[in-house]
Nucleic acid binder design. Sequence first.
DNA 1: ACAGCCATGTAACTTGTTACATGATTTT
DNA 2: AAAATCATGTAACAAGTTACATGGCTGT
Lengths: 184, 184
Amino acid sequence: MSVRHGLLAVLAQGPCYGHQLRQEFDRRTGGTWQVNAGQVYQTLDRLERDKLIVRDGEDSEGRELFAITASGRTEVDAWLGASIVRGTRDELAVKVAIAVTLPGIDAASIIAAQRRATAEALAALVEDSDDLGESIVLAAARETGEADLRWLDTVEQLLATAEPYGLSAEQPRRGRPARSHTPS
Amino acid sequence: MSVRHGLLAVLAQGPCYGHQLRQEFDRRTGGTWQVNAGQVYQTLDRLERDKLIVRDGEDSEGRELFAITASGRTEVDAWLGASIVRGTRDELAVKVAIAVTLPGIDAASIIAAQRRATAEALAALVEDSDDLGESIVLAAARETGEADLRWLDTVEQLLATAEPYGLSAEQPRRGRPARSHTPS
DNA sequence: ACAGCCATGTAACTTGTTACATGATTTT
DNA sequence: AAAATCATGTAACAAGTTACATGGCTGT
C-alpha cells in the first residue's frame, strides 16, 4: 500500500495534478521508488473511487487537480499513526528456509551466491545524499543489507548441525473422498 | 512470488495433494507463513495453467495428486539460483521518508511509536526452535528487527539537522492541454 | 523533421488474500 | 448430535505493474 498511501499523503500537503504527484513521490523517496506513470493515474482512480480524493478543477495551465477529502486525511493519519510490524513473511528467509529442506540442493552455494549479491548491492549504494528522504531510504537499505549478511552467517552455522528433511509421513485420510461435488 | 514458488519447490520433492502441500509449506517455514487453504488451490490452478505442474491421478485414498513438470523444475532451479536483491522499495523506509517531508507532522513521535512496536515484536519472538526452517526464519526476523532499531536511531540523527520540505516550485507547463482527446 | 519530455489515460495482467460453499470423517 | 478437522474448490477483490495510445510542446 506504499504507492497508494504515499500519493495520498503528498496530496494531504495540497492539491496536485498527476504528473506532479509522480515527481513529488519520486523526490521524497530519493528516487528509489520511481513509480510508473500509468500507475499514478490508476491509483488516483482508485483513490477517487474510495472517496479519499476528488477531482478539483484545473490549475492555471489546464492540468487536472486532485484534492484530498476529509476521509482521505483520516486515512493518512491512520497510516502515519500505525506502526509497520514486519511480519515473518520474509521472501528471502522463506526461500532459504524451503531451499534447505529440499533434498539434492546445494544449500551452501545458494547461501554463498546470496551473500555475494547482497554484498555487491550494499557496495553499490550511494555514499550519502543531501536530500533527507533519500538519506533515510539509503540508511534503511544499508542496515537491511548488513543485517542480511549477519543472518546468512547464522544460517550457515545452523546448516552445519542440521539433519535432512523429508515429506511428513503419510496420514490416513479423514476428509471427504475427492471430487464428490460439482458446483451449480 | 513466495507462495507460488514455495509450493512449486515442495512439489519438486515429489507429488502431493493440496492439503498436504499446505501443511508442508507451513512446516518448512516454521509455521510463520500459514497460507490460506483457498490460496493453495488457487495457486495450484495457476501453476497448472502455466504448465509448471500437472494433475497426476489420485493416491490410494482418492486425493488428487499434483506433479511437477520439466518446466516446473527449470523454474524452481531458476528461483533457487537467483539471488534476491532487496530493492530500496522498503515500505517502512518509504513511509518514514514521506512522513518527515510532510508539514505539520510530528515525525519524532512517529519514529518513537515505530521503535516501540519494533522492540515489542522483537521481544515477542520465540527464543529458539529445533526445526531448521523455523530457526532460519526466526533468525531473519531478529536481525531485521535489530537493523530497524539501528535505522530508527539514524533517522533521528538525520532529523536533528534537517530543514523543512515543501512542494517543488510550480513549473510552466510544456505538455498538451488537459482533456483534448477522448478514446473511441 | 525528429527526438525527447510533459501529461493523461486505458487495458490487461500478476500475485496475494479472504469469504464462502461443500461435504466427509473422526472425536467428544 | 455437535464440533473439529480433513479436503477441495469458487468468487471476488486489492495492489502493483507494464504496455500501449494519444498528443502537445521544446530544443536540435
